[in-house]
């Protein structure tokens, strides 16, 4: 029968450094793979709207006339589905978590991609 089984663990805890960090004064733990938030590169987006169809939480909206790509950060569940399916790799996952917000709203990105005039100039779409 043990009475002081916890003593060893408790003493160790008292004598060692805290395992928690003082977030937000110290940055949160991150790894290279951490799914923080989705960012879009407007110069590569071809408005194919595959990301809109593949989003399980319907957070993405694409307006082809106004040339905007918008995301509702409150709806986004950061599943990486859009990043995986994007054919031009214009979407990428940033490791920084979205900052807390007190108001709901959407983040709008402008699409600046211009369709290359003729197929012979293959270097153009990179601009």
């Amino acid at each position: 029968m043990g009475f002081f089984e916890m003593t060893k663990t408790a003493l160790k805890t008292v004598l060692s450094r805290p395992v928690t960090i003082l977030y937000p004064y110290q940055p949160a733990k991150k790894t290279g793979l951490t799914r923080g938030h989705v960012v879009q590169d407007g110069s590569k987006c071809i408005s194919c709207s595959i990301c809109v169809k593949k989003c399980p939480s319907q957070a993405i909206l694409l307006n082809k006339e106004a040339k905007t790509w918008q995301i509702d950060r409150f709806r986004c569940v950061v599943c990486n589905s859009c990043v995986d399916t994007c054919p031009t790799k214009c979407l990428s996952m940033d490791t920084q978590y979205t900052a807390p917000a007190s108001k709901q709203g959407v983040e709008v990105f402008t699409i600046t991609y211009v369709k290359p005039p003729k197929p012979e100039k293959k270097e153009e779409p990179k601009e």
């Binding site: 663990t9 408790a10 805890t13 395992v19 569940v77 599943c79 990486n80 996952m93």
Partner: peptide, 27 residues
């Protein structure tokens, strides 16, 4: 309470492995 914290301290190491290998701690 002390035991509660001790268990969760070990759990944190498992979650770190999750984050390093999949990119998500919980999901």
């Amino acid at each position: 309470e002390n035991l509660f914290m001790a268990a969760w301290r070990i759990r944190e190491r498992i979650l770190d492995v999750f984050e390093q290998t999949t990119g998500g701690r919980v999901i």
